[in-house]
Amino acid sequence: MPHLVIAKLLTKSAARKPSTRLYPAEKRAPPKGARGRLVMKQIETCVFCGVCGKKCPTRAIAVKRTDKTWELDRLKCIVCGECVEICPKDCLAMEGEHATAFVAKKIETHVQKPKPAASDPT
C-alpha cells in the first residue's frame, strides 16, 4: 500500500505562500453582488411607503410614516435583499462587506429631516 501519498501535496504547499489572510490587517474585497449587509443609502428620498417592511420575511424593518423614521433591527435581518429589490425610490442598498459583531442589541433608526418650506416666489 502506498504510504505518504500526501507528500507531494505538502511539498507544493510548503513552497507556496499561505492560503490564509492576516485578517483583520488584510481584508478581502467582497465579490460583486455579494449580500453582506443592508444599508439605508438615502433617507432623504424615502417616501415611507413601508413596502420594505411588509416584504421583509423576518419583520426586521419598521417604517413609521408619522415620525418619518425608518428602523432596522440588524439582528433580525437575514440579508435576503427583498427590500432592496422592492424599494420604489431606490433608497436601500446591499453592501458586500458583512456587518461587524455586536455587543448589545440596538435598533438602527434613520430619521428624515423635515424639508425646508418652499419659499413663496411672490
Partner: peptide
C-alpha cells in the same frame, strides 16, 4: 399579526 411592517 406580526410586529413591524408599516404603521401610520
Amino acid at each position: 399579526p406580526a410586529p413591524g411592517g408599516v404603521s401610520s
